[in-house]
């Protein structure tokens, strides 16, 4: 074990995958000598050369289109969008071609798209979004949103090994803000398995990514007030671990769904609807959703703080649920 930040765990995973599998290569804007906008690929071009860690001209379409083609030829591309927001420029190749290839032809497209996402830095409307729900809606894509260094490393290795196109959302706020002991050897964490981040009996919070930390902070307050909170870190949104969520809700009978993405048609709606369909009789309170309001991500710090759910907001929502 060695202590790693979230971003160091990602870099370590990429290095190990590049070493063990000649089919794996990275491509993205400024990912070579510059090491990427966030430095996730720092030092990798030095070790693996310019054809395995490829600097791409500024064209997201060319990045994901050529990744798709190379994957069809048997390679394992891992593409970086400089910011998750920019993936909209390459939507067609991902959604029309990569996602549907297996269904229509029988050959899956084993690409991984790494997407630095999330707000909290005044990146403004085009550099702060959490577009995971958009892609969770597309059959054929897998969507992963790790919250810890251990998960980031193991889930990324699993994503690269997966035969399907996987979108791997890395929350920018977590890159350097959290560190923990991470196994040095390669390991994988299966896609589609949630993790109980904190065990509890009275209320369930289902969330992912950076919001797991916000939920954990709120749970401490609730604990002091005598309410025991269980936090389910979904880790993967597509496929998502319905059983883990249903098991927890059947135990606590109260559910809060929490996400940083906007509310309407966010993935929280899918979770709430599923629980209402399958565990309605076990619920003691209406399912509650806490998410960003339906606006673009604002630039100014006070507006952004109001946009992103804060621990106090989670505390209030949990208190309401517990008191229902």
């Amino acid at each position: 074990m060695a202590e790693r930040t979230y971003i160091e765990a990602i870099t370590e995973c990429l290095r190990q995958e590049l070493r063990r599998d000649q089919r794996v290569f990275l491509l993205g804007e400024d990912i070579g000598g510059f090491g990427g906008a966030f430095k996730a690929t720092k030092g990798l071009q030095e070790e693996f050369g310019p054809w395995r860690v490829i600097d791409m001209p500024l064209s997201e379409t060319a990045i994901l289109g050529s990744a798709t083609g190379a994957a069809l030829m048997g390679l394992r591309p891992v593409a970086e969008m400089q910011f998750a927001d920019f993936v909209s420029c390459a939507y067609d190749h991902l959604v029309t071609v990569a996602a549907k290839q297996h269904f229509r032809v029988g050959d899956a497209i084993p690409i991984v798209v790494r997407l630095p996402s999330g707000g909290g830095f005044s990146g403004g409307p085009f550099h702060s979004q959490n577009p995971e729900s958009t892609f969770a809606h597309i059959p054929g894509l897998k969507v992963v949103c790790p919250s810890t260094p251990v998960d980031a490393k193991g889930l990324l290795a699993a994503a690269i090994a997966d035969p399907n196109p996987v979108l791997f959302f890395e929350h920018k706020h977590l890159y350097r803000s959290i560190r923990e002991e991470v196994p040095e050897e390669r390991y994988t964490i299966p896609l589609g398995q949630a993790r109980i981040r904190r065990a509890g009996d009275d209320v369930t919070v289902v969330t992912w990514g950076a919001m797991t930390w916000t939920a954990a902070e709120a749970a401490v307050t609730l604990e002091a007030e005598g309410t025991s909170v269980e936090i389910i870190d979904l880790r993967t949104l597509q496929p998502w671990d319905r059983e883990a969520v249903l098991t927890s809700v059947r135990k606590t009978s109260r559910l809060l769904v929490l996400h940083e993405d906007t509310r309407t048609a966010g993935f929280g709606a899918e979770i709430a609807a599923t629980v209402a369909e399958l565990a309605f009789e076990q619920l003691d309170a209406p399912i509650r959703r806490l998410a960003a309001p339906d606006t673009p991500v604002p630039f100014s710090p006070p507006l952004e703080k109001a946009f992103i759910p804060q621990a106090d907001d989670v505390v209030r929502a949990l208190q309401d649920l517990a008191a229902y």
């Binding site: 500024l58 927001d85 005044s122 403004g124 085009f126 604002p298 630039f299 100014s300 507006l303």
Partner: peptide
């Protein structure tokens, strides 16, 4: 305050806006 540096726009003077998408 909603846009910041990369979104400055003013249609009154014919400025369609800075653009965070290259």
């Amino acid at each position: 305050g909603k846009g910041g540096s990369m979104h400055i726009a003013d249609f009154r003077v014919g400025m369609l806006g800075a653009n965070g998408i290259v």
